[in-house]
Simulated assay, not measured.
Amino acid sequence: MKKIIYALILPLVVLSGLVFIFAPFAYGSGDNRDIKNETSKKSIQKSLSAAEKEAELKKWEASPDGIQYKKWEASPTGKNVYASATKISKSIRDYTNMEGVVTSLSLPLGSRLGFGLMVRINSDDYILAFGPEKYNEFQQLHRLKVNDKIIIKSHSVLQAPKYSYPIVAGDYAERDSKIIYKRAPRKDGC
């Protein structure tokens, strides 16, 4: 019985070994490994030098989008947005508490920032954006009311010509010493 099993298995092992060895040649002279290495090298982007970054920035500034952005930056609205962002930059950099008052439970009309609120921090208005809503993760935030005082922590503040307010990324929110939202760390490690 053992001899019959060995007699059946041995040819399968030899045949599969031969297929494994000669399969790359069946698809075109064994160059598949070279193509795979070549594409993986292409997918890794090298970082740009300072001169290349400067050249890319100049190129973008000369584009229609860059010209429009520069005009917005120089406008009174753009200057106000940047001034407001500067006021909270130390708290953003140090990831420290900022006290805010909810001024609106909705974002400006036409915004595409996902779920968010309008808050007043140090007498300036900000968009507090939490991102797209999934799995009721903002359930506690939906219970907020206008004039509620909250503590906010964030890692970033952004400016965009579409909005008349700086955009604060909502990473942490607390009301009455109770955490009502804390962004989960990313799974990819970044």
Rank of each mutant, 00 (worst) to 15 (best):
R183D: 13
L107I: 06
Y6W: 07
L8F: 08
I151H: 10
N147L: 11
M1S: 06
S43A: 09
A50Q: 13
A23F: 08
A62V: 06
V19K: 02
I167T: 04
A85H: 03
R120M: 10
L57I: 15
L57K: 15
T39N: 08
K3D: 11
N37A: 11
L141N: 02
E56G: 06
K42M: 08
S63A: 15
V168Q: 00
A129R: 03
I88D: 06
S123H: 07
H142I: 00
K42C: 00
R183P: 05
G28N: 04
Y69E: 05
V14P: 00
R120G: 01
Y69V: 07
S104K: 05
A26D: 00
D148K: 07
K42T: 08
K42Y: 07
K182S: 08
Y95F: 14
Y172W: 15
D94P: 04
S16Y: 14
N136C: 05
T86H: 12
G17P: 01
L8C: 07
K3T: 10
L18P: 02
F138K: 02
M118W: 09
R175T: 11
K70E: 08
K187G: 13
S154M: 06
L107Q: 02
Q139Y: 14
K187I: 14
Y172T: 07
T96E: 11
S49N: 09
E38M: 10
N80D: 10
I150E: 06
K36T: 00
S104D: 13
K53V: 11
L158G: 04
H155W: 11
P64W: 01
F20D: 09
S40P: 00
L10F: 12
P161L: 10
K149F: 06
S84P: 00
K70M: 10
S89Y: 03
S177I: 04
K70W: 03
P108N: 11
D31A: 12
I4N: 06
I67Y: 03
Y172P: 01
L105A: 07
W60Y: 15
S63Q: 11
I35K: 10
F20M: 11
S43G: 03
Y6P: 01
V101F: 02
V119T: 05
E56T: 08
V19C: 12
L8N: 02
D65S: 14
Q159H: 12
E61C: 03
S75R: 04
A51D: 14
S156E: 14
P108S: 09
S40I: 00
F25G: 02
D34K: 09
R120F: 03
K87I: 10
P64Y: 04
T39Q: 10
S123T: 13
S43F: 05
L12V: 11
V19A: 15
S16E: 07
G116Y: 02
G114F: 02
G100H: 01
I44K: 13
K2C: 09
K79N: 11
P108E: 12
K149I: 08
A26G: 04
V19Y: 15
P64V: 05
N80S: 10
N97F: 15
S164M: 00
S156T: 12
E52R: 00
R33P: 01
S91L: 06
I151G: 04
W60K: 08
S177D: 15
K87S: 13
K53M: 12
A85N: 08
K70F: 03
D94E: 11
H142C: 00
A55I: 07
T86S: 14
N136A: 07
I88P: 05
L158I: 00
L8M: 12
